[in-house]
């Protein structure tokens, strides 16, 4: 069910401000692609264009093409709501629905899709929580509020919620930046497990993390504050970290700036 993403010549705007310019890249199915780069370089902004979450922000718009296999996500007959049902997203801070139980959080996406049968829901909730390595920790308290879990558990709950609807692609926007090292490790292991089934794109500020979890890495940079961010290069992760073809990438990775 994993699909390929082809982006060509994408410009991203906030109102008049061009935040990201001229991105062209391919994201392979069943792989992990990491976006790295200094703050403000537009990697999160770009990530959000891949499931049309960017346009939720007033003034947010894009130019260019994003193809999911052969379907242009920005074609005029495509419903952004349908896009977001196919391409799931996990955010920087865990955001389980605070008024819902653990069970209801995972079932939320299915219920939005009109699934009502208790048996089907039970099944998917268990499968998703197992998929997110959370089942054993929460199986005895599925009816307790999701907000009562630890930060790392909450983030895995959000991942369970995202995979419950069986998306084609999973986008993760710095999913570990609000977590402690142990929870971070748990999420990274999970990403490793998930990539056999999903196309995963992850934004991270943590280069070790990019090196650990990703197959391919894209380096974004911006010329100066107020200028649009650009994709500098995208390549196999071990090449980016050991032998990048652009000098700026090497400078960033070796800590000479950023």
């Amino acid at each position: 069910m994993a699909k390929r993403i082809d982006v060509s010549d994408l410009n991203v705007y906030y109102g008049q401000f061009k935040a990201v310019e001229g991105v062209t890249m391919t994201v392979e199915p069943r792989s992990v692609t990491a976006f790295i780069g200094p703050s403000g370089c537009g990697k999160s902004t770009f990530l959000r264009t891949l499931n049309r979450m960017h346009e939720v922000i007033p003034g947010g718009r894009v130019e260019g093409k994003v193809l999911l296999d052969d379907q242009d996500l920005y074609a005029s007959d495509v419903d952004p709501v349908a896009v977001r049902r196919t391409i799931g997203m996990v955010f920087q801070r865990p955001n389980p629905f605070p008024t819902m139980s653990i069970y209801d959080n995972v079932a939320a996406g299915l219920r939005l899709n009109g699934v009502k049968g208790r048996k089907k829901l039970d099944e998917v909730v268990e499968k998703s929580l197992r998929g997110a390595n959370l089942w054993n920790e929460v199986k005895d308290r599925l009816n307790k509020p999701g907000a009562g879990l630890s930060g790392g558990q909450q983030q895995r709950l959000c991942i369970a919620r995202a995979i419950a609807v069986e998306p084609q692609v999973l986008l993760m926007d710095e999913p570990c930046s609000a977590l402690d090292p142990i929870s971070t490790l748990a999420i990274e292991d999970l990403i490793n497990d998930l990539k056999s089934q999903y196309t995963i794109v992850i934004v991270t500020h943590n280069m070790q993390q990019a090196a650990r979890v990703s197959d391919r890495t894209a380096f974004f940079n911006l010329a100066a504050t107020g200028k649009p961010g650009k994709l500098v290069e995208i390549d196999d992760t071990h090449r980016i970290f050991n032998n990048p073809s652009v000098k700026a990438t090497e400078d960033y990775i070796s800590g000479r700036f950023g």
């Binding site: 979450m53 799931g88 997203m89 955010f91 955001n95 389980p96 939320a108």
Partner: peptide
């Protein structure tokens, strides 16, 4: 974050 959580689920 809550609103985007819902929107991202479609």
């Amino acid at each position: 974050a809550h609103k985007e959580g819902a929107l991202a689920l479609g």
